[in-house]
Design a protein around this nucleic acid. Structure first.
Lengths: 251, 251
DNA sequence: GTCCTTTCTTGATTTGAATCAATTCCGTCT
DNA sequence: AGACGGAATTGATTCAAATCAAGAAAGGAC
């Protein structure tokens, strides 16, 4: 029994630091509830860069929380192209879009070595019946995902290339900030190609925008590494009044 | 008591026909469960064309199901513009994006005289604890919304004007079809402006595409009224492999 | 009915981003 | 270390859709 206590405290720390942040902490689960949740979570070996966590069409069993690293999700389109639908950073969930169809509508590929918690959804659902605050939190998380997607829509709707990249960089900035990382300096784990795809822009355009931003003194960029010198100006450029373009992680 | 029975049977028919279709029917609620659900639902007087069901920033209390008519949702952007984020037809839900923030991130305006059921979310949540199949259905519905938003993203990402309008018309077609209406002939309740805004296109471009579609014999359009002559071709033009562009209502 | 507003359509022109086409830069492999 | 290959940058050109600019058609008000 004392083993269990040790185990539990270890989990608490892990959740606080990363993956289940949005799922556990904000709703203040009791220790024994937290333990119940922990029991159903599967730890997997880390996914290496380029490996898939799941593929489009795979049967839906679990949702996933990123403990560390990052993952991109993308869907194939008729003409054989891919459309990147999201980037999932540390502490963010993925797989929520599979619940209704019972299969994954997208493929999830690791952008770097990434460790995830796998949460079997059926068991999570059962647990929701027992723990009202968990159920409520699940609704919150799903609603947030809808909101995030709407923001992505807003971005693609009427924004020009400059506004799109600005909003994207600001979004990443906010997400890192809410995890306790620097909002001014970070590494982008995704390629220019992925960014362009996500933003509905050609790679070349993304590259040109980075150059323009740098020349205007807004930021310094070298390959993956970005240092933002003027977050306020970036915010102004992003233009969308709605939550700076993305709030996947502000909960 | 006999009043209640009458009331209940009336509701059953109503739900089957329209608004709570996705929320009730697929999970086969027992009569008494259905009654419990019915008790918490508020019927409102119909919303007239141009009137708002809720406004951006309004506190979140309820989600809404469209019984008949149609509603557009849109968010303001920094530059005073509006971005249409969705159209909600008969049988579809709205307001799900407000759960996480506790306020509505968009305004909902009736496109025609529209009647809705208001479902207080707190009470729905409580009911979910009692009725597992209701809870499960709620997750489904929310997941579907995420999926729908992703599809919208896909549409705006890399598709040209022709593909966007084709996908939009096909989406409307599918949604009408799943309600038992004709997929080949319908009235668009929204203006060209709204369509353009939703699709990230200028009004003039939408108009030109309609003209082009008509000239190619794909469809006949007169003002709001659309008759589609070749659904297969429309499907090909839409181009997105994912569910023909939209499946808000196929559940 | 007529007037007035709004919505829609059509045409001419402009423009921002895509595409095409080279290089250059890095990381990786041997 | 050198060589290869993918990623990123930069420049030149093209093109699809936005914008600008009128009209035409529909819907409402009176």
């Amino acid at each position: 029994m004392s083993d269990k206590v040790v185990e539990l405290s270890k989990i608490k720390v892990a959740c606080k630091d990363c993956s289940l942040f949005q799922l556990c902490l904000p709703m203040g689960l009791e220790s024994d509830d937290l333990e119940k949740l922990d029991v159903i979570i599967k730890r997997r070996r880390p996914v290496k860069r380029g490996e898939d966590l799941f593929r489009v069409g795979d049967g839906f069993r679990s949702i996933y929380a990123v403990r560390s690293g990052s993952i991109k999700t993308f869907s194939p389109t008729q003409d054989g192209q891919e459309q990147v639908t999201g980037f999932h950073l540390t502490g963010e969930l993925l797989g929520l879009d599979a619940i209704s169809n019972n299969y994954h509508p997208c493929t999830a590929t690791a952008l770097e070595t990434t460790s995830v918690c796998e949460i079997p959804f059926e068991r999570l659902e059962e647990l929701g019946h027992q723990i009202p605050s968990l159920q409520r939190q699940l609704f919150r998380v799903m609603s947030r995902e809808i909101f995030t997607e709407e923001n992505h829509t807003l971005l693609l709707g009427k924004r020009n290339a400059e506004e799109r990249l600005a909003a994207f960089l600001l979004s990443v900035s906010n997400r890192f900030k809410s995890r306790g990382f620097s909002p001014n300096e970070y590494n982008l784990s995704m390629s220019r190609n992925d960014i362009g795809n996500y933003l509905g822009l050609a790679v070349e355009t993304v590259s040109r925008m980075f150059t323009r931003f740098q020349e205007s003194g807004l930021l310094t960029v070298e390959r993956k590494h970005v240092v933002i010198h003027d977050l306020d100006r970036l915010h102004d450029m992003a233009g969308s009044s709605r939550s700076s373009g993305n709030t996947r992680s502000s909960g």
